[in-house]
């Protein structure tokens, strides 16, 4: 056994058999069936969807509860710690690729399909000759009029909020590694609040878009990419906020040590990832 580098820890922690995964599968199965039914106006679908979601929440609480217990019990040696780091990094990579698909759709429609429909081309002349493409105001020949979202209003404020939250989170991390627990808790609390504030502003923005600007999912390629990108991002902020609140709760309970706090770090990595996505989003969706 080779404890010095930790990597060859002889006794890798292997968890006991667990019922959470199968609970999670049942949850997702119900959600999938439920959503498919609901989208096709089959009555029971909605309830199945809700039930599945409830089971999923139960699973998440139970599963992460187990993980936290194990972490607190000191079951996770250095090698497990490394595994968790690799695992989280690759997970975030997969998330990056998910967003890449939607950014790809944005660039493609903006650079290729909208101009082809809207300017000189056989497509324009023969099929859509009465349509003039202007991004973002009119992204399709059969799209109702709408106003595009202005970058330097709420979105800019939200950018500032997210950037600040990244800083306060790092500040909290410093507190943790230097043993200043007060700073940890305060930093986390502020970050969570900023996350909530961001979500509130986004909700206001969506409401405004929907009710006053005529901007909705049906607003052509612009509306589709706008709502899908910002919507998925918002969902990630929500998840991140919940993760950070959990970390705050754990910090209040006295969890985490200077050396051993991967749960916190994982949430922080996730938050920074969400932050970076927003910056790209701000530039390409709102600004340019």
């Amino acid at each position: 056994m080779n404890v010095e580098n930790g990597v060859h820890d002889a006794h890798y922690f292997v968890p006991a058999p667990s019922r959470w995964p199968i609970v999670g599968s049942i949850a997702l199965f119900c959600m999938a069936m439920g959503a498919a039914f609901a989208m096709n106006s089959v009555g029971a679908g909605k309830w199945l969807l809700i039930a599945g979601f409830a089971i999923l929440l139960w699973m998440i609480v139970g599963w992460f509860g187990d993980v936290i217990k194990e972490a607190q019990a000191g079951d996770y040696g250095l090698q497990v710690d490394h595994s968790l780091r690799w695992g989280m990094s690759w997970f975030i990579f997969s998330e990056v690729m998910f967003f890449a698909a939607f950014f790809g759709a944005l660039f493609y429609t903006r650079v290729i399909s909208v101009p082809e429909i809207g300017y000189f081309s056989d497509t324009h002349d023969l099929l859509w000759s009465s349509f003039q493409a202007v991004w973002p105001a009119a992204t399709g020949p059969k799209v109702d009029a709408y106003t595009a979202m202005e970058a330097f209003g709420l979105p800019a404020i939200n950018t500032a909020i997210l950037l600040t939250s990244g800083a306060t989170l790092t500040w909290a991390h410093w507190g943790l590694v230097e043993g200043r627990r007060g700073q940890l808790k305060l930093g986390l609390a502020i970050t969570v609040l900023l996350g909530c504030l961001f979500l509130t502003f986004q909700a206001i923005e969506y409401h405004h878009a929907w009710t006053e600007m005529g901007l909705n999912l049906g607003s052509g390629a612009y509306g589709a990419t706008f709502f899908m990108l910002t919507g998925f991002h918002g969902m990630h902020v929500l998840v991140g906020t919940i993760m950070l609140s959990t970390m705050l709760g754990r910090a209040l309970k006295g969890h985490f040590t200077k050396e051993h706090h991967f749960g916190f770090e994982a949430a922080a990595w996730y938050w920074h990832f969400v932050d970076v996505v927003w910056l790209i989003l701000f530039v390409f969706v709102y600004w340019l």
Binding site: S113, T139, G140, P141, G218, G223, A224, F227
Partner: peptide, 13 residues
């Protein structure tokens, strides 16, 4: 949900 990612009528393809 009425998006136009793959519909020319909304600028998609």
């Amino acid at each position: 949900f009425g998006t136009h990612f793959f519909k020319a009528a909304g600028g998609g393809d």
